[in-house]
């Protein structure tokens, strides 16, 4: 399995697009920080402190999600469109193993982007923002909060990329997978808000995608709890993966 992941990782980084994605991530993160600084200078959003910024890096999530979804959507679909799927599946390796290696690689890539984004974010937070006398950077609470928020925002990356991965492997079309995933990412919260008075809203997966809502308190649907959200998400993830694996394993490759 490690060798298969090594393969996927190698293929990923030999594509120019992947390097461009990292570049985009760095630029967008830096731009976002610049914007925050500018807003802070205009004194519109109140004084922003270094500690305050570090405690909530969840704004990274959106950029990382966008990029990870592109990789997740293409990792299976591109093998079909390049025709390399024939070469990949005529090996003494069971298909589910290949799919698992691809899925793990996507998540590893997501984490990697998150890490890069986080490093850039921290550097700029240090450079651009003044420290607040009240809280100290050496205090554990600032960092634990920071990492917790990072983890919560990664949740959204994980869920959306799993969705994109499933669509990409079922329909073998990366554009469809990217389109659908981003559509859900952008309109999901609106749909949830519209349906919030109905029971069904509680069981839609996009109601729960943004786990940071439990920390920020900006809940889409009232009366949600974290364990409930995690349970609903787990069910959806299992369903997505089941569909993805069963179609991939059964498929007759004719192209």
């Amino acid at each position: 399995m490690l060798k298969l992941m090594q393969n996927e990782w190698m293929k990923l980084w030999h594509k120019k697009g992947t390097w461009i994605m990292v570049g985009i991530l760095v630029i967008l993160t830096a731009g976002m920080m610049g914007l925050m600084k500018w807003i802070s200078l205009q004194n519109m959003g109140g004084e922003m402190t270094r500690e305050g910024m570090i405690q909530d890096p969840s704004s990274l999530g959106g950029t990382v999600l966008l990029l990870t979804v592109i990789v997740a959507a293409g990792i299976v679909a591109s093998e079909f469109s390049q025709g390399t799927i024939k070469m990949l599946l005529t090996r003494p390796v069971k298909r589910w193993k290949i799919l698992v290696s691809k899925f793990l690689t996507v998540n590893l890539f997501g984490m990697f982007l998150m890490l890069i984004g986080y490093v850039v974010y921290l550097l700029l937070a240090m450079l651009l923002f003044k420290s607040d006398a009240g809280e100290s950077l050496s205090s554990w609470s600032v960092w634990s909060k920071s990492l917790y928020m990072l983890l919560l925002s990664f949740g959204n990356v994980f869920i959306t990329s799993t969705f994109a991965f499933a669509i990409g492997s079922v329909f073998r079309s990366s554009s469809l997978a990217i389109g659908l995933s981003l559509f859900i990412y952008f309109t999901g919260s609106t749909i949830s808000a519209l349906l919030s008075q109905y029971e069904i809203a509680k069981y839609l997966f996009f109601t729960h995608m943004d786990l940071t809502q439990f920390e920020t308190g900006m809940m889409l649907v009232p009366d949600l709890t974290m364990p409930f959200s995690l349970a609903v998400l787990a069910v959806y993830i299992v369903v997505f993966l089941l569909i993805s694996f069963s179609t991939f394993i059964k498929r007759d490759v004719t192209a």
Binding site: N7, M10, K11, H14, T84, M87, T90, R91, P92
Partner: peptide, 28 residues
């Protein structure tokens, strides 16, 4: 079994050697 199915489609963005390495890793 060694297989060549129609035109062998390789990963164009990698070198020939990397392609071979890729497939070698899938065999024992």
């Amino acid at each position: 079994v060694g297989v060549i199915v129609e035109n062998p489609e390789m990963y164009k963005f990698m070198s020939g050697y990397k392609n071979l390495l890729h497939f070698a890793r899938m065999h024992k």
